[in-house]
Design a binder for these strands. Structure first.
Length: 460
RNA sequence: UCCUCGGUAGCUCAAUAGGCAGAGCGGGUGGCUGUUAACCACUAGGUUGUAGGUUCGAGUCCUACCCGAGGAGCCA
């Protein structure tokens, strides 16, 4: 007989007939003449209740089935006379596939997120983490659907990069040298003998690759892992995370902001449609205000505010900030929080930042003071998107690379696309896990990625 | 890297002022029951994060370290 997934049973109307269920025992309750076994197979949040009566061949074994064991059950779907479920499986055979001894760490009770992080290999077997990772999967597929429907091409940008000054971020070195005894030259390590013939690192962004391809295929995006070696200890940072990075040729900052808003709104709407049951778990047990938050994200227009005006709002606010605000200073967490959570209470896109606090590739505005940068900030999390119109003018870009103290030679290919048929273009990076935090109400980024990598922690 | 809080049974936590280490859940045994985080009774389960110190006596006070969490910074 062919296996039936529990999600299929619950979505049939009405469910009926013979089924073969395969899954893991969540709980078992005994009655006088039978045992109630609740089985979950990960296909959906709901379990299915199996009723096994004492006439079954393996009833002695069934009575001992422990939480966490894997089983196969054949039986007939019937209307349930009990409360709490409309249907149940009247078992004809129950087979133990894999036993779970009493050292199985997951109980029927609620566990703390901190404890579950220590058993990240088992936590997807809980209701909450099962829901999280079903939503994560749906969100990833919604990303591809969003861009596919709009004629964007998906680019696989490299994970290992050779540019050693991509930005101020700390990089993870990639080497095939014997780190205990590396070849030396002039007192330092001789990377000319390394695998690539020079220093290499894990990527911190697919943006540069995406720009090159946007100036060939028009509208493109990357969606892959990125790596930051910062020694950050916050609930919003991990060392390995996923970013969605669209890049559009013939697009200015306004078009960029339009896409950012459209993307966040569309993805949120898609998850609201497709993952109702899983989202409801978060609304009930994690964040009671989640439905309201998601409604705001989907239905309200986002505020668009020049950095300069944000500074004015912050300066005239009654609240006193720990860090003073002035034009030219980067906004601190407390300032972002004030704008999204107190002043506007909805997503805010800030744009036209001072060029002194933004990287070299952002397009200089006519005022010679700001660049065409934009950040999308959301309540509760802060920045989930950062992007800009890129500097497409060769001479200005060269000057800015030099002013940043970087090596123009290293970026010959980045400059080449400005040299040959340059066009205005724009793009941004969306933190995939940050968006997941927004969608689920999860307070910690480590709880929306399967196996989080943080300073001092790489188990699993 | 800095600041704050925490670490007690498998899990979640309690333990007055420095004075016999406990409860619920989970496990085991028995009972009851179309049960719903089932219920009732009994039962096993501990190097109180590690190392030192103060004290007649330390889970509790002191020092160092380890681990976790929150905040800040860092953060294309």
């Amino acid at each position: 007989m062919k296996r039936t997934k529990i999600a299929t049973v619950h979505s049939s109307n009405p469910p009926s007939g013979q089924v073969l269920i395969k899954g893991w025992v969540r709980t078992r309750r005994d009655s006088k003449n039978f045992s109630f076994i609740e089985i979950n197979d990960g296909s959906c949040l709901k379990n299915i209740q199996v009723v096994a009566d004492d006439g079954l061949a393996a009833y002695d074994q069934i009575r001992k089935l422990a939480t966490g064991s894997s089983v196969e059950v054949t039986g007939e779907i019937v209307a349930s006379p009990g409360k709490g479920q409309a249907w149940e499986v009247r078992a004809e055979a129950v087979t133990l596939v894999g036993d779970a001894p009493d050292s199985y760490p997951l109980q029927k009770k609620r566990h703390s997120d901190e404890f579950l992080r220590t058993i990240a290999h088992l936590r997807p077997r809980t209701n909450k983490y099962g829901a999280t990772f079903r939503i994560r999967s749906a969100l990833a597929q919604a990303v591809h659907r969003f861009f596919g429907e709009r004629g964007f091409y998906y680019i696989h940008s490299p994970i290992i990069t050779g540019s050693d000054c991509e930005g101020a971020g700390e990089l993870f070195r990639v080497t095939a040298l014997d780190v205990d005894n590396p070849p030396k030259i002039g007192g330092g390590v001789d990377y000319s003998q390394d695998f690539f013939g020079r220093e290499a690192n894990l990527t911190v962004s697919g943006q540069l690759s995406a720009e090159l391809f946007a100036l060939a295929l028009g509208d493109v995006y990357t969606f892959g892992p990125t790596f930051r070696a910062e020694n950050s200890h916050t609930r919003r940072h991990v060392a390995e995370f996923w970013m969605v990075e669209p890049e559009m040729a013939f697009c200015d900052l306004d078009g960029n902001m339009d896409l950012a808003e459209d993307l966040v709104r569309n993805l949120t709407g898609a998850i609201r449609e497709q993952c109702k049951e899983d989202l409801d778990l978060f609304a009930r047990f994690v964040d009671k205000s989640l439905p309201q938050t998601l409604q705001t994200v989907v239905e309200s227009d986002y505020i668009r505010l020049p950095y300069r005006e944000a500074i004015d709002i912050l300066r005239s606010a009654e609240k006193t900030f720990e860090f003073p605000v002035s034009f030219g200073s980067d906004l601190q967490s407390e300032h972002e929080k004030f704008l999204t959570e107190v002043h506007f209470k909805k997503p805010v896109i800030l744009y036209d930042y001072p060029k002194t606090i933004k990287p070299f590739y952002m397009r200089a505005n006519a005022d010679d003071e700001t660049v065409a940068a934009m950040d999308l900030l959301v309540p509760g999390i802060g920045e989930i998107i950062g992007g800009s119109q890129r500097e497409e003018r060769l001479d200005i870009l060269e000057a800015r690379i030099k002013a940043a103290g970087m090596d123009v030679e290293q970026y010959w290919w980045y400059l080449d696309v400005r040299r040959y048929g340059t066009v205005p273009h724009s793009g941004f990076g969306l933190g995939f896990e940050r968006l997941l935090m927004l969608l689920t109400g999860a307070a910690n980024i480590r709880d929306v990625i399967p196996f989080p990598r943080t300073p001092g922690s790489i188990e699993f």
